[in-house]
């Protein structure tokens, strides 16, 4: 890929570094320890966090934010544990993901991955109940995946999770505690936390 210097965004690194977790971006000296030790590279050979960092430092804003590889980091922290420069790469990639999500919210980017949808659906369960409600999460996620159709979502979910659901049922793991949400009593304070710290 040819780098077009006139298209570089010199403010991009500051944008990332102002997100919590992105603070140590400029400490990276490109040793590639993160990438060599990353367990994901054994499955997705092209996955390269070192490259994402260098492109961020250069200011290749559009290329970084539209990179589908942002959404397959498992946050396993191997890179963070091994980085000699304390870049905290797992946190840094998370910070870049949040910049991308803001960009999408502003209508300037279309994220191809379903991961933001899943994370948001997860967050909505917490905001509503204070605890994770698996069924609610799955239903909201599948609905979103199927373009907002609750019925289509339900169908796809049933197809994907039929065997799994039956397996859990046979083991006594699909009782009322799984079918209905467990709610925190003091949901008022949970609501206040989300009002203050969540982008919604």
């Amino acid at each position: 890929m040819a780098i077009k210097t006139w298209e570089l965004d010199s403010g991009f690194k500051d944008e990332i570094m102002s997100e919590p977790g992105g603070e140590n971006l400029t400490k990276c000296f490109q040793c590639s320890t993160c990438t060599l030790g990353c367990p994901l590279t054994e499955i997705v050979a092209t996955y390269n966090p070192r490259k994402i960092i260098q492109m961020s430092l250069l200011g290749m804003r559009d290329e970084v934010l539209s990179n589908p590889d942002l959404w397959i980091c498992l946050i396993c922290q191997t890179c963070t544990a091994r980085c000699p420069q304390d870049v905290r790469i797992a946190d840094l990639l998370s910070a870049i993901r949040r910049v991308a999500e803001k960009e999408e919210k502003a209508g300037r980017l279309k994220i191809e991955s379903h991961r933001p949808l899943f994370d948001k659906a997860f967050e909505h369960q917490l905001a509503k109940y204070g605890r994770l409600y698996d069924m609610g999460l799955a239903m909201e996620y599948y609905k979103g995946k199927e373009g907002g159709s609750f019925f289509k979502g339900l169908l796809t979910m049933s197809k994907d999770y039929k065997d799994f659901g039956m397996r859990m049922f046979k083991k006594g793991k699909m009782g009322p505690k799984a079918m209905f949400p467990e709610k925190v009593k003091d949901r008022a304070v949970v609501k206040k936390i989300f009002a203050e710290f969540s982008e919604g």
């Binding site: 919590p20 993901r97 967050e123 304070v189």
Partner: peptide, 23 residues
């Protein structure tokens, strides 16, 4: 007593994770 979710791997904003777990 009345614990809430820690945020798991899905809540990515550290401030929100810190606030949830502060409770």
């Amino acid at each position: 007593e009345d614990w809430n979710c820690c945020g798991a791997a899905e809540i990515e904003d550290p401030k929100l994770v810190h606030a949830l777990n502060a409770r």
